[in-house]
Design a protein around this nucleic acid. Structure first.
Length: 275
DNA sequence: AGGGAAACCCGAACGC
DNA sequence: TGCGTTCGGGTTTCCC
C-alpha cells in the first residue's frame, strides 16, 4: 500500500542507490515493454514507446505520491497506488508474475514496474504540470507554516479526514497516515476543517509530519504481503487496531466510515466537539 | 460546495 | 476441503 513514505524510499533507491539497488540516473532507455496496456495512462502506446526510446534519465524526484523521472526531453511519472513496486535488476533476470512494464537500459540493467492489482499508472508528458499541477503543498516542506496550514483549513468546510486525503489540499497523505495523524493530534476525523483553531491546526501539521517521518524512517507501511515494504505497519497506533485498547487511555479503538474510507480512531481521545 | 456512489483490480479473509 | 462473497487500497468521474 504505497503512500508517501514508500514512494520516498523507492525514490531514494532509484536516485541514490539505496537498499542495494543501483541508481538509475544517467541511464539510457533502449526499449520498453508493456505487459498490461492500462498501466500506461496514455491513449497511444506506440507513441509512448517511440517517444521514450533513446531517452536518458536525468533526475529522480517525488511530488506527492508520484515518482517523477525527468528525462532529456520529457517527464515520466509513476504512481504505485497500493500494490505497485519498482525494482532494478539485470535484463537477463527472469521476469516475475505481475510484472506490468519494464524499461531496458543500454548497460544491461532494467527497471521493472510490478503491480499485482493493476492499479498503478505511468505517464509520459512534456509538461509536468499535466500531472502534478493541481497538487497541494508538501507536508514535509518546512516553508509550510502552521499559520498557512490553518488558513488553508479555513478555506474549506469539509470533514477533516477526507480533506487530508484530498491531494489538492495536501500532497502525499493516504488513509493510514491520516488516521494516525488525527489520532496523534487528538482530532475527530469528522471535525469540520473550518472549526479547527490555530492550536489544533499546529498540532495536526506536526502530527502529519511525525507520522510521515516515522514511515520514511521505517521504509514505509504495508498492510499485506503485496508490497515488500518496511516496518511501519508494526507501529500503527490506531490503523487496523479496531477493538484494541487505545495507547493513551485504554478505550477500544473504533472503526467507522468517513468519506467512504475505513477510519480508525479513539472515541475517548478524539472527541467530536464541533465548533 | 461538498458528499455519496460507482468504477477500476485482485488476493486475502470470511462464511457456509 | 472447496466453493462463493466481501473487502479495501487511491483516484477519477458522475450525480445529487
Amino acid at each position: 500500500m504505497p503512500e508517501l513514505p514508500e514512494v520516498q524510499t523507492i525514490v531514494s533507491a532509484l536516485r541514490d542507490g539505496g537498499r542495494g539497488a543501483p541508481s538509475i540516473s544517467g541511464k539510457q532507455i533502449v526499449s520498453t515493454k508493456i505487459a498490461w496496456q492500462k498501466t500506461v495512462a496514455h491513449p497511444d502506446l506506440i507513441t509512448f514507446q517511440e517517444k521514450i526510446t533513446g531517452e536518458e534519465i536525468r533526475e529522480i524526484h517525488r511530488r506527492g505520491k508520484f515518482i517523477w523521472i525527468k528525462l532529456r526531453s520529457a517527464h515520466l511519472f509513476i504512481h504505485l497506488r497500493m500494490s505497485g513496486d519498482l525494482r532494478v535488476e539485470p535484463s537477463t533476470s527472469p521476469l516475475q508474475s505481475h510484472d506490468r512494464m519494464w524499461f531496458e537500459f543500454s548497460d544491461g540493467l532494467r527497471l521493472v514496474f510490478n503491480d499485482a492489482r493493476k492499479f498503478g499508472r505511468v505517464w509520459l508528458v512534456d509538461d509536468p504540470n499535466q500531472i502534478i499541477g493541481n497538487l497541494g503543498p508538501e507536508p514535509l516542506d518546512e516553508t509550510l507554516s502552521p499559520e498557512q496550514f490553518h488558513e488553508r483549513l479555513l478555506t474549506y468546510r469539509r470533514q477533516i479526514k477526507p480533506l487530508l486525503l484530498d491531494q489538492r489540499f495536501l500532497a502525499g497523505v493516504g488513509n493510514i497516515y491520516s488516521d494516525e495523524a488525527l489520532f496523534l493530534a487528538q482530532i475527530h476525523p469528522r471535525r469540520l476543517s473550518h472549526t479547527l483553531n490555530q492550536e489544533e491546526s499546529t498540532r495536526l501539521l506536526s502530527a502529519i509530519r511525525q507520522v510521515l517521518e516515522e514511515g520514511i524512517q521505517k521504509n514505509g507501511a504495508s498492510i499485506d504481503w503485496v508490497y515488500r515494504g518496511g516496518e511501519f505497519q508494526n507501529s500503527f497506533r490506531v490503523y487496523q487496531r479496531t477493538g484494541e485498547p487505545c495507547l493513551n487511555c485504554g478505550a477500544p479503538i473504533e472503526r467507522i466510515t468517513v468519506g467512504q474510507r475505513g477510519t480508525h480512531f479513539c472515541p475517548k481521545c478524539q472527541i467530536f466537539d464541533c465548533d
